[in-house]
Design a protein around this nucleic acid. Structure first.
Length: 420
RNA sequence: GGGUCGGUGCCCGAGUGGUUAAUGGGGGCGGACUGUAAAUCCGCUGGCUCUGCCUACGUUGGUUCAAAUCCAACCCGGCCCA
């Protein structure tokens, strides 16, 4: 657990990877607990900064741990300042990237920002929303183009003067790339400075981030000091491992659970999470008390999947997903079971009949290509209404004979064929 | 800007004129096993309504019966020098 987290409330301390500074004594500039006490006494909520880079459009569970922590601050009466990095997204955060990021257009960034806010719960039932959009004073949404777009060259040079090449190269990512011979564009050096300047612009008391953000958060402290402000605290959360339990959760690695996924896919992905990742997931993504959970890892997987699914979709939907997942997976060869369960539908409308089996699979979208479908069938991984398909060239004369039947690929992909 | 090395399929990485859709590894998918997992073993892994036809080795041209492999120009990157 983080150093110096002694007198902190449980909601704050849960799951954190790092908190700094964490000095001794009761100095409100060195001890977050003291700062919280000071704020409570003055009746002034802390300003808790979280920056998001609107570069992708789907929020997944990995992102949500920061939002959960931010929400916890909101619920404790503090002000969440959500910064949409619409300006910095156009530079591209080099963090964790082996290569220079593509710069995004302003329009694309804006579109992404909109979908982000919707996924965070803008206009949603506050009970299910990730952030509290409703309570006055609990949320500010800012775009950093507000203050970054108008910086002039002398100001930029001032920012550049605050750090040194040595400091930049000390950042793990930059040093890896530098020593590994991967290009680093000069403008990438600006990113940590601009993110740090965000803290100045909004007068942050604390910045939330993943552990990969330590450098940037620390930079914010330097900049605030330079501009005569009290430096913020840095609160870092672990980077969530993906469903493989090894690599970080990332869309490009295909090991994510999206917040907007349907209950069944969310549940079924989570209930087979590798054992090693369970404690982390339970701590970071649920409020469950680990001490009271059953020891059996299988039971824990279920509890995890149920809790997270219920958080997004409600208890009823989560329980239904659990039941469906059980029927679908348990009864692999049994078609009858799968026939009752909630299964995503696939339309036969785009299929030209007569249709050969491999073509059907691709036309219906269950396989990415017809060649892939052919292989899947030859590999013995495809079932129609429970019957294994043996011949990729098997022909189906009309949609009528397929309607209502369940097409299955592997153990977990099911599609009910419908006419529409 | 000069010198030099290099750009191969999702990724890494072999291949330096001819059964090459292109060795191998990783990843992914499927099968067996299992706790629905992990580990392990096996198979598949460019596209196409596919007994055949397309498109592929940075880009564009060229040499050749034949090129990822040779030549030229260009684009992109590493390193060294400025």
């Amino acid at each position: 657990m983080a150093k110096g987290a002694g007198a902190l409330p449980g909601w704050l301390e849960r799951g954190i990877a790092d908190l700094f500074p964490a000095g001794e004594g009761a100095d409100p500039d060195q001890q977050l607990a003291a700062r919280l006490a000071e704020a409570a006494q003055a009746g002034r909520p802390l300003r808790v900064k979280l920056g998001i880079d609107p570069t992708g459009s789907d929020i997944h569970l990995g992102h949500s741990i920061l939002f959960r922590k931010l929400r916890a601050f909101q619920d404790a009466g503090h002000t969440a300042v959500l910064i949409i990095g619409d300006f910095t997204a156009r530079i591209g955060d080099p963090t964790g990237k082996s290569a220079t990021r593509v710069q995004l257009s302003a329009a694309a960034v804006e579109a992404n920002a909109e979908t982000y806010l919707l996924q965070l719960g803008l206009g949603q039932d506050p009970a299910r929303a990730l952030l509290d959009f409703e309570t006055p004073g609990r949320l500010e949404v800012r775009r950093n183009s507000e203050w970054l777009a108008t910086l002039d060259l002398p100001q930029v040079i001032e920012l550049l003067g605050i750090s040194t090449v040595g400091q930049m190269l000390a950042k793990e990512d930059f040093s890896n790339r530098y020593s590994g011979g991967t290009p680093i564009s000069l403008h990438e050096f600006l990113y940590p400075l601009l993110q740090g300047y965000d803290s100045v612009a909004i007068e942050a008391d604390l910045e939330l981030g993943g552990t990969d953000q330590k450098f940037n958060v620390a930079m914010g402290r330097d900049l605030q000091r330079h501009f005569g402000q009290r430096p913020q605290f840095g609160l870092l959360m672990p980077i969530l491992a993906g469903l493989d339990g090894v690599q970080k959760m990332s869309k490009s690695l295909g090991n994510t659970v999206g917040l907007s996924e349907d209950p069944l896919s969310m549940y079924s992905k989570l209930e087979k999470l590798p054992d090693a990742a369970l404690p982390e997931y339970l701590t970071l993504l649920t409020d469950l008390d680990l001490a009271t959970l059953p020891e059996n890892p299988r039971e824990r997987q279920k509890a995890l999947a149920l809790a997270i699914t219920a958080g997004r979709h409600g208890e009823v939907a989560a329980l239904a997903a659990q039941a469906d997942a059980a029927t679908l997976v348990a009864a692999v060869p049994g078609a009858a079971a799968a026939a009752d369960a909630e299964v995503p539908e696939a339309s036969l409308a785009a299929v030209n009949f007569p249709a050969k089996a491999f073509y059907l699979l691709s036309a219906v979208g269950i396989c990415a290509s017809s060649s892939e479908a052919r292989r899947a069938i030859q590999g013995g991984g495809v079932r129609l209404a429970g019957e294994k398909l043996a011949d990729p060239n098997q022909e189906f004369a009309s949609a009528a004979e397929l309607e209502g039947r369940v097409l299955q690929l592997g153990k977990k992909t099911f599609r009910r064929l419908v006419l529409g």
